[in-house]
Design a protein around this nucleic acid. Structure first.
Length: 559
RNA sequence: UGGGCUGUCGCCAAGCGGUAAGGCACAAGGUUUUGAUCCUUGCAUGCGGAGGUUCGAAUCCUCCCAGCCCAGCCA
């Protein structure tokens, strides 16, 4: 018997297994992913999605996608659409139809009536400012609202009239009657309903009172038969209120469990701040490839598999964390390394004329599409007298550590011949504009005899190559924890996007479809941009570079 | 200075009283027509700190320290 090392359970799964063992909830496991449609989903949401849907999958339960749409002023249909696309793209399926908290508005209202009748809620007519003053502080208890002891009849009447639209926004709210002296601020008679004369994206003008999160969320969970309601740490203090509300009602009682949100170094996971970047046009949109949004990562070339793997690797705990970018990058490299066909693309071209190669000759050389996966087959590449190589791959002179082309030195052209640099042509200002080389005819598919050629560089045929634009992305922000800074714009990395306009890629890429991932050998992983690329003007996004131990040596000054 | 929570390797993270998993990162080798991949090796006498209980403590107890969250009619 071989014992496969099981990945240890996270604390939430441990709780669920215990519940299952105790036959709690009759063995059902029902979770939900409850975004507010007020922005695009980001990598932090991916963690929550993977957790909630992953648990449902694993325990053969189900997971609902529910829009937590209780604040119409901030929400939009476009976000509802984008969120569904993102969840589906990540590869998850929600249980039957989409849910909306707004679908339960009638039930919320009925339950509120019940609370009022039971003396558990009252209409408070304090202004927002007064309410704040009555609430007390972290160290001082609050005081009871003067409206706290209104009669049930008066409360019922007022609430009905609030619903009927008789009052202006802010005139009254419905509050739970709990304990103004509680050390938990959330229990100091929290607001349950407020008046908002706003058109709701789902319910139109049907309502002018809208429930608060704390009131709507727990009841939504209960209505849907959620067994485990997973949310982030900042809601820990809300759990007593979650439980209190459900305890007042004759209704199911899901268990709220909190876990820490994901933070990623050098970027932000705050919808508010991401929205600011979009609004201020610091980025091209929610799906700008520099954004940590799911849409941005997708456009950048990240795959669902990589994101899911990432969420698996980072774990689920209650401790605050800020994960290094390298973990995410490793995930996408691993996925694409196995699956992306290899091609050649020259980002910063340097022209080479192979002087001993016949003027008009063009021959096809065979190149494997994946060195470790023969099933991906081969393709042919046109080889001719004039080619482009990478500027970085030539130095007039260099020590032995530099395994590329030097003047009077030899190098292997990937999948093709060994060439030797005979001379360098400069412009008037000392810039190298062209190399004159010779090739060794007897080196196609075999090593030259009597000498060793240490380097291999990529190339494209000058007359056959396609012009392309390549966008290189770097970290969005300059500081590891930009969220801690007062002004997010100040932290933005001015070099987060570098656009290269004169790149040359191999001709076979002409028919490359949007989103398709390729490895440009020796450079990195790229995909065709889904928005800006056309057949006439191709645009590639660099998803992530290849690991580059040479660059590391150079930056350390070892070469 | 009220309440809630968290502190295990540079970053994540197992561990649940029997003597510190794993991943990423990093370092050193090897293979290689990608300086990629792959392979091998190294990387916490230490678990926020101090006491205590125990044959035995990261795990239990006490005290202390640090960090995060809460005073929206946001979620």
């Amino acid at each position: 018997m071989t014992d496969i090392e099981e990945k240890p359970l996270n604390f939430i799964r441990r709780i669920i297994e215990k519940d299952l063992a105790a036959n709690k909830n009759e063995g059902r496991v029902v979770t939900r992913f409850p975004p507010e449609p007020n922005g695009f989903l980001h990598i932090g949401h991916a963690k929550s999605i993977c957790l909630n849907f992953g648990i449902a999958e694993h325990y053969q339960g189900s997971c609902n996608l529910r829009f937590d749409d209780t604040n119409p002023a901030k929400e939009e249909q476009q976000y509802i659409d984008a969120i569904q696309e993102d969840v589906r793209w990540l590869g998850f399926q929600w249980q039957d139809q989409i849910r909306h908290a707004s679908h339960y508005f009638d039930q919320f209202y009925e339950f509120a009536l019940g609370l009022i009748q039971g003396g558990k809620a009252y209409i408070c007519s304090l202004s927002a400012q007064e309410t704040r003053e009555y609430r007390g502080s972290l160290t001082e208890p609050g005081r009871n609202s003067p409206y706290r002891d209104r009669s049930v009849e008066e409360n019922l009447d007022l609430f009905a009239r609030m619903k009927a639209g008789e009052f202006d926004e802010g005139a009254h709210v419905l509050r739970a009657k709990i304990d103004m002296a509680s050390s938990n601020m959330n229990m100091r008679d929290p607001t349950l309903y407020r008046i908002r004369k706003v058109i709701h994206h789902q319910t139109g003008d049907a309502w002018c009172v809208y429930p608060m999160y704390d009131y709507a969320h727990c009841i939504s969970d209960a209505i849907e038969g959620i067994t485990h309601s997973l949310c982030t740490l900042e809601f820990e203090d809300h759990r007593p209120l979650y439980d209190w509300i459900l305890n007042q009602l004759d209704i199911a009682h899901p268990q709220q469990i909190e876990f820490s949100r994901l933070e990623l170094e050098y970027t932000i996971t705050s919808k508010r701040k991401l929205n600011q970047l979009v609004v201020d046009q610091c980025v091209s949109g929610w799906d700008d490839p520099r954004m940590p949004t799911i849409a941005g990562l997708r456009r950048r070339g990240y795959t669902p598999a990589a994101l899911r793997d990432f969420c698996e690797r980072i774990g689920v705990t209650k401790s605050e964390n800020r994960v290094e970018m390298s973990v995410l990058e490793n995930c996408i490299r691993e996925d694409l390394g196995a699956r992306a066909p290899r091609v050649m693309g020259v980002l910063r071209p340097l022209k080479i004329v192979i002087e001993n190669y016949p003027e008009d000759q063009v021959e096809d050389v065979v190149a494997s599409n994946h060195p470790q996966d023969e099933s991906m087959g081969t393709r042919t590449l046109p080889f001719a007298r004039e080619i482009y190589i990478e500027q970085d791959d030539f130095r007039e002179q260099a020590n032995r550590k530099f395994k590329r082309l030097v003047l009077e030195g030899e190098v292997r052209l990937r999948h093709a011949y060994v060439i030797k640099c005979e001379s360098v042509i400069e412009d008037g200002e000392g810039n190298i504009v062209e190399l004159r080389c010779s090739y060794d005819k007897d080196t196609l598919g075999k090593n030259p005899e009597g000498r060793k050629v240490r380097g291999v560089i990529h190339w494209v045929s000058a007359q056959h190559a396609l012009d392309a634009e390549v966008r290189l992305y770097d970290r969005l922000c300059n500081v590891p924890n930009p969220g801690a800074e007062e002004d997010i714009v100040e932290t933005l990395n001015p070099d987060s996007l570098e656009t290269l306009l004169n790149c040359k890629v191999e001709p076979g890429l002409a028919k490359a479809a949007a989103w398709t991932a390729y490895q440009f050998e020796r450079v990195g992983y790229f995909c065709v941009d889904s928005k800006d690329s056309t057949e006439q003007a191709m645009v590639f996004n660099r998803t992530v570079g290849l690991k580059d131990s040479w660059a590391k040596m150079v930056s350390k000054g070892k070469s």
